[in-house]
């Protein structure tokens, strides 16, 4: 089985007029199926740039990026779109939901572009199922403006999941959330990973990274360290601990 992600000497240089920004300067990285990778690093180190390329939204300026063994540099616009649709789920930094559109319709979005076509009833069923999975079964007809940040993030995750991707990419999925909601999101990711989905996510928080299986640290467009997580946290246990603590606080004022 080929690696889910294979970056070979991956470079990305942004050119705005005369100024060149070398956002990523030669990254080699392999992620096998079933991995759960956290990418860390200071702001501007090239994490989002890397994620966007792996997410087939952008192409490398030098080097190669292979998804499931296919070099995305060789794919056409349409082929990239189909790849995004079928194999990839992307949770964006800042949720990027459609405004004035219900949670259910937002989650349906990737299915509208699925090939072969999915019937409307099947779309409804699968969108509801995905929302159920992220714990939003009761809020399907809410528009984003009527959802909290954590709920919006869950909708975004449900949308990323709905086409049953092999690779889930998340750019700071817990960035704007309180720690408890963050842990709940990590719980969803851990569950999906346990079911065999490969997950790659960007985070600034070290404790969030400890829910993953592997941490890659970037600096100035290069990978500086790449190590497995030693003391891995389990989201379910952590939430139980939090709840126990809360009870204790309430009992002893």
């Amino acid at each position: 089985m080929p690696a889910v992600i294979q970056l070979e000497d991956f470079h990305k240089t942004y050119r705005t007029g005369e100024i060149e920004v070398r956002a990523v300067r030669g990254v080699n990285l392999i992620a096998e199926p079933g991995e759960f990778v956290a990418i860390m690093g200071s702001s501007g180190s090239g994490k989002s740039t890397l994620m966007n390329t792996v997410g087939c939204l952008d192409r490398p300026t030098q080097g190669k990026c292979l998804i499931d063994g296919v070099d995305i540099g060789s794919l056409s616009r349409n082929e990239l779109a189909d790849l995004r649709n079928r194999k990839l789920g992307f949770v964006f930094q800042g949720f990027n939901l459609l405004a004035r559109t219900t949670a259910l319709e937002n989650v349906q979005l990737p299915m509208l572009y699925a090939r072969p076509r999915i019937t409307v009833s099947e779309q409804n069923r699968r969108a509801a199922e995905a929302l159920e999975l992220v714990g939003l079964g009761e809020r399907m007809d809410h528009t984003p403006s009527r959802l909290s940040g954590g709920q919006q993030q869950r909708v975004a995750i449900a949308r990323a999941l709905v086409n049953r991707p092999t690779l889930l990419l998340a750019d700071e999925p817990t960035g704007n959330l309180d720690s408890r909601t963050g842990i709940e999101i990590m719980g969803i990711f851990q569950k999906l990973n346990d079911e065999g989905m490969t997950v790659v996510m960007v985070t600034h928080e070290l404790d969030i990274a400890h829910y993953c299986k592997r941490i890659v640290v970037m600096r100035d467009g290069l990978v500086r360290s790449d190590a497995p997580v030693t003391a891995r946290l389990n989201a379910l246990e952590e939430i139980q601990k939090l709840e126990a603590e809360q009870k204790a606080v309430q009992l002893n004022p």
Partner: peptide, 16 residues
Amino acid sequence: TREIGIRLAVGARGRD
């Protein structure tokens, strides 16, 4: 534009 970006990102083709 953002909406279009979202649609493209989740797999809409230019034609869609």
